[in-house]
Design a protein around this nucleic acid. Sequence first.
DNA 1: CGGGATCTTGTTACCGGTCACATTCGACGC
DNA 2: GCGTCGAATGTGACCGGTAACAAGATCCCG
Lengths: 371, 371
Amino acid sequence: MPPGTAPLETGEAQDAPREDPAPEAAPGTETVATSAEELGRPATIRDVAALARVSHQTVHRFLQGYEGIRPATRERVVEALAALEYRPNLTARSLTTGRSMRIGALTHELDQFGPSKIIQGAAQAARDAGYVLDILSLDMGDPDEIDRALQTVTQHDLAGVLALASTDHMAQAFGTANFRVPAFLAGEEDEFASDHPSQLTSVGFPALIDHLAELGHRRLLHLAGPSAWSAARNRARAFEAAVAAHGLVSAGVVHGDWTARSGHEVVSALPSSLDFTAVVAANDQMALGALLALRERDLRVPEDMSITGVDDIPDAAYFSPPLTTLRVDFVAQGRRAVEHLLARIAGREPEDDDALISQLVVRRSTDATAR
Amino acid sequence: MPPGTAPLETGEAQDAPREDPAPEAAPGTETVATSAEELGRPATIRDVAALARVSHQTVHRFLQGYEGIRPATRERVVEALAALEYRPNLTARSLTTGRSMRIGALTHELDQFGPSKIIQGAAQAARDAGYVLDILSLDMGDPDEIDRALQTVTQHDLAGVLALASTDHMAQAFGTANFRVPAFLAGEEDEFASDHPSQLTSVGFPALIDHLAELGHRRLLHLAGPSAWSAARNRARAFEAAVAAHGLVSAGVVHGDWTARSGHEVVSALPSSLDFTAVVAANDQMALGALLALRERDLRVPEDMSITGVDDIPDAAYFSPPLTTLRVDFVAQGRRAVEHLLARIAGREPEDDDALISQLVVRRSTDATAR
DNA sequence: CGGGATCTTGTTACCGGTCACATTCGACGC
DNA sequence: GCGTCGAATGTGACCGGTAACAAGATCCCG
């Protein structure tokens, strides 16, 4: 016998002229809040029910979109909902349903351009779907981190998990983890991945290599990313494939770690006589480092050496010289990752989407080779 | 009369040799799960209580660190906790307490270096404190966005809100919003802010201007950020103050929008005869754009013109030439913002922390002036 | 106009912690 | 050996939604 938690007095007070909704506490009658201010706290479904003089279940049904509510009743509910500015408490909802409107994003490279753009796109897509993105930042290197993240996930009743890390380490940890909820591993790069082989010969790297071939370059050096990153491997593979397809020659593949510093180091360490006329870097930062290293070796870009990047970071257009590169749509990748995850959460098959194609942006860092 | 939800049979089964904990369902006796696997779902506090043959409240007390539990009892609880791999359900906890272990981060410039680094630091600090950072990405320009964010906050029972936006627009919207929970507005930049006036004359900009003065520069141009950003205004003010303190001359302040593109535009648009010998940009990107514009005007850096930035983005060391800049510790700023917020959540006064000082990094973009 | 089918609405319990209060236990004093 | 008091532990309700089921209202038809 709960003491009148939800008083259902069918008093006349409500039917009286709206002008005088003064809280006249009739004896034995619980006063019913008629406005959000009067309540002083977020309205609950029962507050609304009391004001509408229905059961909380009727309010609930209305909120679920149930049709079989008498118009008169429905109207009272609608009014009460508005008067109390009702917003469902998502925590309470999560408790019963066991699921929340939250997506966990596992990540650890928030400071890099690609990943942070992906997060941006993912956050947008999540928001558009009414979800919130929880950042689960990982300290890589500590193997327990994945476990900790996993615990966080289960403790927070997340609706799903998006793994935005792109290293093998992460992919592996992710693969063995059991999140108990839908999960989706988003590589930084889909386009060059092996399950889109058709893309390899249509746009992106082929267009880039094509561009260099047209300028007369025959021997190309690839400045690749760290091989533990799938994106780095994919790009290296795409490079090799495109070079072969054009009958050009790969002068080798050297590895950096995505940073300008590594690009600078690697290029500085090359032997003094270079048997290639263009450097194809796997990202713009490394290209930047290479640019400086070439300058320090008294090689002019593009007269003596052409150089290209991938990503098209905003700064790339203002390097000296401006960088020819492949523009990658990271925001779209992030959006898409979330959409895939949401599909999985809903039990749907993700819709087959068009391949994200990167676009060649020609700037001054490439030109006809003198050699 | 709840039907034995938490069976408290003091059966002997538990005291029997550990070797045989087979689930022998005695008639009229609910079986008690003795391991996480057997349960097949996350263990609740009542599962633990049943296994430990205590009330759920005793388990609760243990978890709260209550001391007055008899050793024998305590031991059973500890064992049950471990056997069932109990993890509190944070959603349920939030429901009763009305607070969660989540911090909302309002942001809209996730792709910029500073903000994304700040988020990184904030996410770390949040994680270290057992919190999770929820990204509430805003579409600026739409004034309803703040309202939407506010609703999100209340619906999700967030413990606090961190506003990481740095524009006046955001600050103002934030100031008028009532989040019902602790909130903290973190500017991108503390160091140059007016409430740390002492810093203005000790490190950071003064060191930078000092450096230029020593190289013989007398007239300096400031390439500022958009004036709607407090960080831009702070930096401009710090510039003016430092110039005055050194008896140098400000050749004016021109405004960009933080991008390399804007730096390039602004410097390209300057009259043909320049009456200054150094450009002090408010961030590295604009300095990059300026660098290219100067090169296009056939001005050599640093021989004809020195140039400096602020932030020390990783790429700055590999610009052509490498950029003299002020290193700003954004990660620390993010951490600190979260710590402040957590203090406010806990009702504590935030501890007075040392000013975050930016550090002068001298590279090749500055040199003695020929003029 | 009664009885069942249907439509509409209400009642009660539950999710898993937390809190307020009640009860039992054990030690001690007389 | 019994009463007392504090320590140890248990009971039941509650947070705000959701779900299963029950019951009242309405309607239709013979």
